[in-house]
Every structure is written in structure tokens, then in C-alpha cells.
């Protein structure tokens, strides 16, 4: 039995979720030069808000999504104003520490409101898998892969083809020069941060449909997103997206393939990913996909 195609598809699914989560993190790093530790917690909290609307209040998908987007946008604006902007001028440590505080606050708030037990967004129907050429895939997983491709290409178009994207690129390449030309760093980074948060929330909702939700998942996803970003090079969006798919591939291959009769137990998947980060940091700290100084 050949499991390689199935593993590749699984890698694509995991990679899509990581890519949705980490592209926003990378965008934020490129513009504000801060590591947003709460990014994984945004995913978690956003997914719980969606859960609140869809499962607990039984709203239809569309209004629930709309309400979640509005809540996410307001929240990201406040988070940026309170937890990040007052600190960026002083030291990189500060915003990192405050976002750690924010992440912890979100985690405890969600634990208090929803309890620490596992919750799931998926209904029974979404688990019926379809077989395509020996590979099993559920409709949710198809949506994940397709929407990741659409959203990420949209992001690429905006960043590379529009005047707004040109400003984003200018600001992340040379902050002072861009500001001297009259670009508002505050406005642009607020907008980008909101987009990043909404991407994260979308990824969180997808995780909720694909597996399940837990208040502690925030830390895990933050670290995974950092891992993808390290693989691709800090602040380098396309590198980060490539890194996300690579991370998904590494994780799935590490448990699926057996190395001479010995295969890694499933629990080691995470440990293996962290080992990869350390190896990359040791040998190519600038990231795998960086040539020269350009970020985009």
C-alpha cells in the first residue's frame, strides 16, 4: 500500500492552515518589526467567537462570519492601539512581552468563558470523505486548500499589483525613507495588522472544522507560525508561505514514512518540527528562501 500520495495531501492541508496563520505574522513583522506572540491566540479566540455565534447561538454561516469579522477587526484595532503601538518606539522586547501578556489574557479569558474542554465546529457530515485516486479527503479539507490558495494569491496581488501594496513594500524595505515620502506607517500597519488578524481567525475557524478547538492551542500555533517564519526568513512573506508548506510536509513525512523499519511515533511530530527550526537557526539563520536583502 502506498501512502505517499495521502501524506502529500495531508501535508498540503496542514501547510495551508500554517500558511494562512503565518503569512499575517510575517506581514506584521515586516512592517512593525515586532514578533506578535499572541498571533496563535488570535486564531484560537477568533475561532471561539465563531463557535459562539454558530454553535451556541445557532446563527447561519454568513451572518456568523460577518459578526466574527467585525469583532475581529475591532479587536485587532484595540490590540494594536493598546498592546503594540505604545511600545514599538522603545525596544523590541517590550512589544514581545506585552503580546505574551495579551496571549495569556486571551487564553485565560477563553478558558473562563468556554471552559477548557475540547470544542468542535464540525458536524458529522463534514467527516464523510471522498476518495480521489486512492486519496481520502473531506469537503472541509478541499475548502481549506482552495481557500488558502485563493486568499494567498489575493494577498500576493494586493501586495505586488496595487499602489497600496507598493506602500507596504516600501515601508517594510525602508521605514524612514517611506515615511519621508509621506506614507503613514500607522495607517498602513493598522490595516495590515487587521488583515493579518482576520487571516489568523480564518485559519482558526478552519482548524475548528478540521480538528477541534482548545484554549491552549494558541501557544502551539504561535510556535508553529514562528517556525514557518524562521524557515522562510523573518518578515519575508513568500518565504514564510513556502516555509509553512515545507513544515506541513516535514511533519507529515516524519510520522508517515518509516526509516528502515522504524517510524517516528505520532506524538513526536511537534518535536520534530522544533528540531528543524533549531537546525535552520544553526545553519541558515537568515531563512531558507532569502537571497540578498529584499524582503518581498
Amino acid at each position: 500500500m502506498d501512502i505517499l500520495p495521502q501524506l502529500l495531501v495531508n501535508a498540503l492541508i496542514t501547510g495551508s492552515i500554517y500558511a494562512l496563520a503565518s503569512s499575517g505574522l510575517s506581514l506584521t513583522y515586516g512592517l512593525l518589526r515586532i514578533l506578535n506572540f499572541a498571533h496563535g491566540h488570535f486564531m484560537m479566540a477568533g475561532a471561539y467567537v465563531f463557535y459562539f455565534f454558530v454553535v451556541e447561538h445557532e446563527l447561519a454561516l454568513f451572518p456568523a462570519a460577518l459578526l466574527t469579522i467585525i469583532a475581529g477587526a475591532i479587536f485587532s484595532f484595540l490590540a494594536l492601539k493598546i498592546f503594540i503601538f505604545p511600545f514599538t518606539a522603545f525596544s523590541f522586547f517590550l512589544a514581545f512581552v506585552t503580546t505574551i501578556a495579551l496571549g495569556t489574557l486571551l487564553e485565560s479569558a477563553v478558558s473562563i468563558v468556554f471552559g477548557v474542554n475540547v470544542k468542535s465546529l464540525s458536524t458529522g457530515a463534514s467527516f464523510e470523505s471522498i476518495e480521489i485516486g486512492g486519496v481520502y479527503i473531506t469537503p472541509v479539507q478541499i475548502i481549506i486548500i482552495a481557500s488558502a490558495i485563493i486568499l494567498l494569491s489575493l494577498l500576493a496581488c494586493v501586495i505586488h499589483k496595487t499602489p497600496f501594496g507598493r506602500r507596504v513594500r516600501a515601508l517594510s524595505e525602508s521605514e524612514h525613507a517611506a515615511q519621508a515620502l509621506g506614507m503613514s506607517k500607522n495607517k498602513i500597519s493598522t490595516l495590515c495588522f487587521t488583515v493579518a488578524t482576520l487571516f489568523a481567525i480564518y485559519a482558526g475557524v478552519m482548524v475548528g472544522y478540521e480538528t477541534n478547538l482548545q484554549p491552549t492551542m494558541g501557544n502551539a500555533y504561535t510556535i508553529k507560525a514562528f517556525a514557518a517564519m524562521i524557515l522562510g526568513g523573518l518578515g519575508n512573506i513568500w518565504g514564510t508561505i513556502a516555509g509553512s508548506y515545507l513544515l506541513g510536509l516535514i511533519e507529515n513525512l516524519s510520522i508517515g514514512l518509516d526509516f528502515g523499519g522504524y517510524s517516528l511515533p505520532a506524538g513526536y511530530k511537534d518535536a520534530f518540527a522544533f528540531l528543524i527550526i533549531l537546525l535552520v537557526l544553526l545553519f541558515r539563520p537568515q531563512g531558507l528562501f532569502v537571497r540578498g536583502g529584499r524582503k518581498f
Binding site: 498592546f83 511600545f87 517590550l94 512581552v97 506585552t98 505574551i100 501578556a101 495579551l102 495569556t104 489574557l105 487564553e107 485565560s108 479569558a109 478558558s111 473562563i112 477548557v116 484554549p215
Partner: peptide
Amino acid sequence: GPMRQALYATILFVVV
């Protein structure tokens, strides 16, 4: 447990 966590996180933020 979460209350304790939230308390520490708030203090951390306020001090910083």
C-alpha cells in the same frame, strides 16, 4: 487557574 493567569498577565502588561 485561568484567573491567576489573567492576573499575572495583566500585571505584566501594566508594569511594562
